[in-house]
Amino acid sequence: MELDAFFFAMAIPAVLFAGVSKGGFGSGASFAATPFLALILGPGEALGLMLPLLMLMDMGALRPFWKQWHWPSARALLIGSVPGVVLGVALWKVANPDVFRLLIGVIALGFVGWQVAQKRGWIRPAKRKMRPLAGYIAGATAGFTSFISHAGGPPAAVYLLSQRLSKTEFQATTVLLFWILNWLKFVPFAFLGIFTRETFTANLFLAPVAFAGVWLGVWAHRAISERWFFGVTYIFLTLAGAKLIWDALT
């Protein structure tokens, strides 16, 4: 990783975009920064660069929602996330970078497909509350996809939407879940060597951008259409995901 003008020209918009999503649009699209960075960095570098920044953003988002979460739902997802993270660690030890490019690309396209299906009514929340077992399964999926590409939002949302939470409870539970899950990932990331001196140095430069993105997201929540924001996100993720899959297979 070279911290040159090209790197910052790519990294600053990606981190800013993640902050905007965290601060104003439920954080659902914040993982889009990882596929974007994976176009110019190795998968490990992209993951290692983004995790501390996402944790900073979580800290900014946690205070407004403190103790407003639905703990039973968060607990089920967190219990399930542990084996998901363990599976991610096991795969990391044996797979080469192209496998992770492929997985990040597939997850990016899967996210777009899931969102489109939800908007069109092809996927609807369960009519009855899902049982804790479903929460464990959703948590395991979220833990794995979060470890691979910081993209645990959709599996967690499937379960949380079935719990008929209020808007505030849903957002607060999501914030709590990924605040703890990101700490859970931090330890194996460190032992696997995903964090490097270069990612740490880059984090120092990009931390103000992360906070600025969260602040901008609060403003954008009132000033920018959610439909426009996510429309741009879906187009970008489709292109980035397809490019990563192409690179991995060729």
Rank of each mutant, 00 (worst) to 15 (best):
V94Y: 11
V82D: 10
W228V: 11
G44W: 07
D247A: 12
A142R: 00
L77G: 04
F186V: 10
V187N: 14
P154F: 01
K129Q: 15
S21N: 13
L177H: 05
T250L: 12
P208R: 06
V218Q: 13
G84Q: 06
A74C: 14
S162I: 06
A138E: 00
G139K: 00
A108R: 02
G28P: 09
P155R: 02
W219V: 12
V94G: 08
Q163E: 13
A14V: 09
L47H: 02
T168Y: 06
W69A: 04
A210I: 04
A117S: 14
V214R: 00
M55W: 07
R222K: 15
W228M: 12
I12C: 08
F230Q: 07
M55D: 05
P52G: 03
H70G: 08
I107M: 02
F230H: 11
A134T: 08
W122M: 12
V94C: 12
L204K: 08
W246N: 14
G28L: 14
K129H: 15
A108Q: 07
Q163S: 10
A126W: 12
K243Q: 14
K127I: 12
K22T: 03
L204H: 08
L87S: 09
W215L: 08
P132W: 03
G28F: 13
I104W: 00
I148D: 01
L56W: 01
R222L: 12
W228Q: 07
T233D: 06
L91R: 04
I40R: 03
L103S: 09
R63Y: 15
F31R: 01
F6Y: 13
G152F: 01
P155L: 05
K185E: 10
N96A: 15
A9F: 14
Y136I: 06
L87Y: 06
G44E: 10
S162W: 08
A61D: 04
Y159E: 03
L216A: 11
A74L: 11
G241H: 04
S30H: 06
Y234A: 09
K127F: 11
